[in-house]
Design a protein around this nucleic acid. Sequence first.
DNA 1: TGGTTATTTCGAAGTTTATCTAAATAAAGT
DNA 2: ACTTTATTTAGATAAACTTCGAAATAACCA
Lengths: 84, 84
Amino acid sequence: MDKLWSALSDSTRRNILLLLHEKDMNAGEIADNFKISKPSISHHLSILREAHLVYSHKEGQTIIYSLNKTTLRDVSRFITLLMK
Amino acid sequence: MDKLWSALSDSTRRNILLLLHEKDMNAGEIADNFKISKPSISHHLSILREAHLVYSHKEGQTIIYSLNKTTLRDVSRFITLLMK
DNA sequence: TGGTTATTTCGAAGTTTATCTAAATAAAGT
DNA sequence: ACTTTATTTAGATAAACTTCGAAATAACCA
């Protein structure tokens, strides 16, 4: 749970998740939506990947990232428990 | 949203929320549930308070903390949106 | 083989965070 | 007034985090 929550604690990463909710994207496309450098975005993506919030697969020259909705259920469960 | 998510990113703070879900507690009682010092717990409580995840009121000599479930709805909304 | 494109890894700088002890504040009782 | 109890604030330190530019890796094409 720890990696999951700290992955979610950064607003750039939460915005990446919102982008991927709309559609799958490659790393460059994702980076184009932010002002920070590509290495920084790559780093954020690796944190999201380690938290299992996204997964990626290679397609030709590019790497496509997708939202992993399954992991979000763990967060949802925690919040729902507290709200009861 | 930023203070909210970073408040949730620390496991001690999430455990404080779980404790307060069971019942309201004063700061000392909360601290007794952890190995870290009382000043550290006090610091965590102030972060939770600033994020509006808990509120507090004085009762005689002690300060009673309670879970603020309303704020959790914002988190829940974000997660629910992503899960759709 | 060499060049181009896409992405990650490396190494460093600056900022933020969690934690501690010691000191300060505040309320209550003696 | 002084002491005890409950909690917070202050100041310091070490670890973790975000960010960058430059270099490395990998795939594709000419």
